[in-house]
Design a protein around this nucleic acid. Sequence first.
DNA 1: GAATATACCACACATTTGTGTGGTAGTCAA
DNA 2: TTGACTACCACACAAATGTGTGGTATATTC
Lengths: 204, 204
Amino acid sequence: MKPDLTVRQKQVLNFIRDRINHDRISPTIREVAGFFGFSSTGTVRDYLQVLSRKGYLKLNKNKARSLELINQEQGLAIVGMVACGKPQFAQEDIEGYLQPEEWFKASDDLFCLKAKGDSMAGAGIMEGDLLVVRRQSQAQNNEIVVALIGDEATVKFLRRHKDGKQGRDPKYFLEAANKKYSDIPVTEATSVIGRVISVIRKYV
Amino acid sequence: MKPDLTVRQKQVLNFIRDRINHDRISPTIREVAGFFGFSSTGTVRDYLQVLSRKGYLKLNKNKARSLELINQEQGLAIVGMVACGKPQFAQEDIEGYLQPEEWFKASDDLFCLKAKGDSMAGAGIMEGDLLVVRRQSQAQNNEIVVALIGDEATVKFLRRHKDGKQGRDPKYFLEAANKKYSDIPVTEATSVIGRVISVIRKYV
DNA sequence: GAATATACCACACATTTGTGTGGTAGTCAA
DNA sequence: TTGACTACCACACAAATGTGTGGTATATTC
């Protein structure tokens, strides 16, 4: 664990964290001083150095507004839900931290699809869910893919035929999680355009 | 729509966007100049003003490293999946943009729970899903809540008894999405500790 | 042909901002 | 009681950074 902070040091760190999280722009030394009523910039600089030494902040020499949080404890604490018992909020039971910014960087090979229909309801993909998709024309067995069947786009499991049926052609087929939809062989008319890497649902 | 940008203007904007998204710190005018090989800071300033006038950037007077993207087009484009037809990647069909940073700010009244069991599978909440939960002891009818049943934490729908059964006590009960679990009345031993506002699933 | 926009350069200037040196006062452990 | 760490102040300085004024050349539009 990181060294403990004093009350005052925590206050300073919290102010900086708030500013970075809310305004996306690091405060300057004088802005910190202004907030706390310090009449000297040196005071703030001393705090920054302590916070840096204790591993909570990264300072960049001679760079304006360049404070960076190196707080692994950013984001939302992920607490495990034990099958029998209340969620454990104790420090030891935190499994990790959910950091929205770190889930994925926006990039050209990612896009986001809004799910329609109930063909994947059995796999927990409901109508309206947002699917983060990586563009790729290949995928592994059992992965969830976005495929173009003729002219229609669908989300399905990509499955390989059992070994016993080797030599079969095509080797892969698309399977819905909902039994009422039938399997679809992967042929020339059926192309994988991406793989679902994440599902996001928001309740209003 | 926003005014169009020239090729060069786009390049400058892209550079700034990359820097902000990757380093989290806005570049200075001179850093932009350096990247493009401009020998004058005025050149960059002119670009910034154009980008600001056209509505892509926010400039803050006399503030170092304070460029802000006011690009609604940040993040991942959300394209609608038309029931019959390929996903529409055309500009007009983009329904919005997925901005991880904007989903929610880390705050004290939010936490994240890792789902266990299959009691909510019917509502698309699978084992291992991350549930973003807002701490609250009240909730509306039909919302998905985290409740403490005696000593055990569960995720369930909060339902109100039909009007016909008015006067009944308790008024609310907890219902699993999976039929094999039975309803649980909300009593003193059963307290709501939060509401599920979002579900996130990542495939490895 | 004049007006407007793009795409740059040069350079001075002022402000913002981080840094350095030195000091006061209190606490707490060795 | 010496040495550390905390919690501040004062002030000077230099580096980083945004801004202002003015210029050149090439398009495009009215």
